[in-house]
Write a protein that binds this DNA or RNA. Structure first.
Lengths: 243, 243
DNA sequence: TAAAAAAATTAATCCAGGTTAACTTTTTAC
DNA sequence: GTAAAAAGTTAACCTGGATTAATTTTTTTA
């Protein structure tokens, strides 16, 4: 019996993400209760917020297609970008179900999400799904730790090289690259707020990379011109392994 | 039926951590299989490594008592300290069971750990435990995100204030403070490697804090002299909520 | 209890990246 | 198609924290 969603685009069995960890578990767990609820699609347009920091009861989603960014504005008005979510990744799980969100989620391009049932009761009958959730959280944690390691003690060129390769690699795992080119909706300000740099210094560094034939960003397209140099700058710490 | 460990010190029902998330789930999940294996205690002395980065098949533990630090030495020889583990916290879970560890775990003081059965098969029959694992990972992720937010865009005084209050708060939740004093086994170099500062600058800043009557570290004891000032520097982002 | 090693401290100098202030190009909205 | 807003670019100057280099204190080990 197939686990299927409501909308025609929402059919899990034809979804490009169906072999990714969480989706696979979701499809495998075919309880009558879960099946009855079904996965519902949610379409959002670019610049639309999915939820804001402080919101309670936000739902659990898998990003089906698009690009979602997690950001938080701190008390002193500075903005932190935590990470980008790419297709197949989970969004909205928290330690305490229905506790306030610590960051906002904004779609950077038109995106489609799949709403996932999210309750203690539900997971209690779905051990495989709960374990999948744990793996997903461990994966997010590892990515965050890698960014922490990248930002701590490393200079601007190294940080940017790391970030670009990490995102490139994550898109490549999903087949979302075109040779050395990827769609790249992040603004220079987003890069700055991710890496703890100023927009001006990100601009200076990207400009230098372009002059040196290392890297080019133009019209939301990023092209890696010299992978070796980027790799040497980034270190090898951007490979997270299978999804 | 009680879930009990082998050693006399390992009896879960008298353990100070028994009401913390993961331990509580562990005690509640009383499958015959799990009970037969039982929780085994492991005692380590200060400066002893539990495992090294790159090790495979490291086991899953809960820290019963003591202080464990997670560190990684990168290719260029710099050391990153990821975080400190305090009693009741989980150690060793990874996205891929038995994959290589990305960091080393070292005990900073004499510590006792409880070894937890760790296999896909085990969790498959224990949905509550698997969900507890997910919550534990989400909690670690949140802590790492808070450190990321703290280090990115904030200066040395603010970073140190945040770190001190975060650890103080986490110890307080466990009743391991004595008024405004806590045991603090971290060296200045550990603080530096956590926050992306140099040992020299950490020393300068701690010295200034002491002169200003804000904070004092002496013989592995840390005393908060002016909570308000530290709080104002740190922002309110160090409170993680219940364990 | 002394020697050795580790950790903490202090001072002088330097520079990567921040700050401030325009200006230009691209995108969005009407 | 045009005005307004957003994003990107450039330059001059400045500072927080890095670097280098000792010295002192504490802890560990023999």
């Amino acid at each position: 019996m197939f686990f299927r969603s409501n909308g025609s685009t929402g059919l899990c069995y034809s979804c490009p993400n169906r072999y990714f960890r969480f989706c696979k578990s979701l499809i495998n767990s075919s309880s009558a209760e879960f099946d009855a609820q079904a996965v519902k699609n949610l379409t959002v347009t670019a610049k639309q917020y999915l939820y804001h920091q402080g919101d309670v009861n936000q739902e659990l989603f898998v990003l089906r297609e698009g690009w979602v960014m997690l950001t938080r504005v701190s008390d002193d008005g500075k903005r932190q970008v935590f990470r980008s979510l790419l297709p197949g990744e989970l969004l909205g799980f928290q330690q305490h179900f229905h506790g306030p969100a610590i960051y906002s989620a904004i779609a950077l391009v038109d995106s489609v999400l799949c709403k996932i049932p999210n309750s203690v009761e539900h997971y209690s009958t779905q051990p495989e799904l709960a374990l999948s959730l744990a793996a997903s959280e461990a994966c997010d944690k590892m990515l965050t730790e890698m960014y922490l390691g990248n930002i701590t003690h490393r200079n601007a060129r190294e940080r940017i090289a790391f970030m670009v390769l990490e995102i490139y690699h994550r898109l490549m795992l999903r087949g979302l690259n075109n040779e050395y080119t990827i769609q790249f909706p992040l603004k220079q300000e987003d890069i700055a707020d991710t890496l703890g740099l100023t927009t001006i210094h990100v601009n200076r560094t990207l400009h230098a990379f372009r002059d040196e034939g290392v890297l080019q960003i133009h019209k939301h397209q990023l092209t890696i011109l010299d992978y070796e140099i980027l790799y040497a700058l980034a270190g090898s710490r951007f490979e997270l392994g299978p999804i």
